[in-house]
Computed example of a mutant assay.
Amino acid sequence: MLRVARFLLVPLLLIAIALLVLSQTSRPATPPKVLTSLGDRPLVIAHRGGKGLWPENSLFAFERATALGVDMLEMDLHLSADGELVVIHDSTLDRTTNGQGPVAALDLDQLQALDAGYRWTADGGQSYPYRGQGVRIPTFDEVLARFPTTPKVIEIKVPDAGMEARLCDALTTHDQLDRVIVGSFYERSLQLFREQCPAVATSAGPGSVRLLVALNLLGLSSVLSPSYQALQIPERHSGLTVASERLMRTAQARGLNVQLWTINEQPVMRRLLDQGAQGLITDYPDRALQLLGRSTRISALGD
């Protein structure tokens, strides 16, 4: 029995020493310029440009959300058949346009000939007010050119397709390396992007989120040196609470900006802000702005 205890004691002692060293050498993330430029107030981030209000991921939506007074625009990137970065959420065209099939099967001219406002409805399909109004799938270059100073949250939707390098090149060309946060559900894409574009802020991938949650539960979060600057998480996932008040405090202690998605109801917005959320990614940015007592300027928006 004594020999077993000694056998176990050595690795446990080594683990304890390793954790002590990590806690002494770990460093919190440094807040990026894209976030420090926005100050300390809670951020209103228009999810896909505010998809509850206008056709998602369109120049029209981004223009309206910007005029509304949001802090950041959130958008998604795919690649066309001819290698152009295009702003659309789904891998297929069916849900949001009058087209069908994979985005990657059509070249840019074919994609931009589609009606990207065709499927949008606010009344369950009784009316489609943006059909035939010239709403189309924009290129990422068009978005960068139209909104050069507006902070953006960008999601890489396609791994292993060279999107990371194209994204870095576009941000460099438009001099917007310090105006964006890049995220993805693909850890390998995030790692590759960080290697290719180290000046750009990123958010935690799913593996990094799981690690932070585990360290938080074990009380070992002080050993973490994040390679990312933002924590973008849902309130709940698979029936479990992710965005607990304790986790948000832990994330902020590690220098991370905590942004919750997709938060659409004002009572939930209020509760999460009270618990420590620093940003709300929402389909209805007008509701978040109203809750925060900020003018939405919505009366100034014409039809």
Rank of each mutant, 00 (worst) to 15 (best):
S227W: 02
P285Y: 11
N98L: 02
I154K: 08
L260Q: 01
L256V: 03
R194K: 14
A113V: 00
S238W: 13
P198C: 10
L53N: 06
Y186T: 05
S221M: 03
V153K: 12
S227Q: 14
G117K: 00
P42W: 08
P102V: 02
F185W: 15
L43P: 10
C197M: 10
L217A: 14
C168W: 01
L22I: 09
T241I: 15
H89S: 02
Q126M: 11
P129D: 04
R41T: 12
S127P: 05
E195I: 02
R41W: 07
P198E: 12
D94W: 04
T66N: 05
M1A: 15
G125M: 12
P267V: 08
L2Q: 15
F7Y: 13
L108V: 09
T173F: 01
R48Q: 07
I263R: 05
D123T: 02
V200S: 04
H78A: 06
T30Y: 07
W120S: 00
T121L: 04
S184K: 05
S225L: 06
N264T: 06
H174P: 01
L68K: 05
P32E: 11
Q24H: 01
Q232F: 10
G117S: 00
L85R: 04
S295R: 11
P198G: 09
D274E: 14
G302Q: 13
D160W: 08
L13R: 05
V21D: 02
D141W: 03
S184H: 10
Y118L: 06
G162H: 12
A116M: 00
I233S: 13
R188Y: 13
M269R: 07
P129M: 05
P55R: 07
H174S: 11
R3A: 15
V180I: 01
I281S: 08
D141E: 15
P285D: 10
Q278H: 13
L272Q: 05
W120F: 15
L38H: 07
L53E: 07
I156M: 14
S244I: 11
R179T: 06
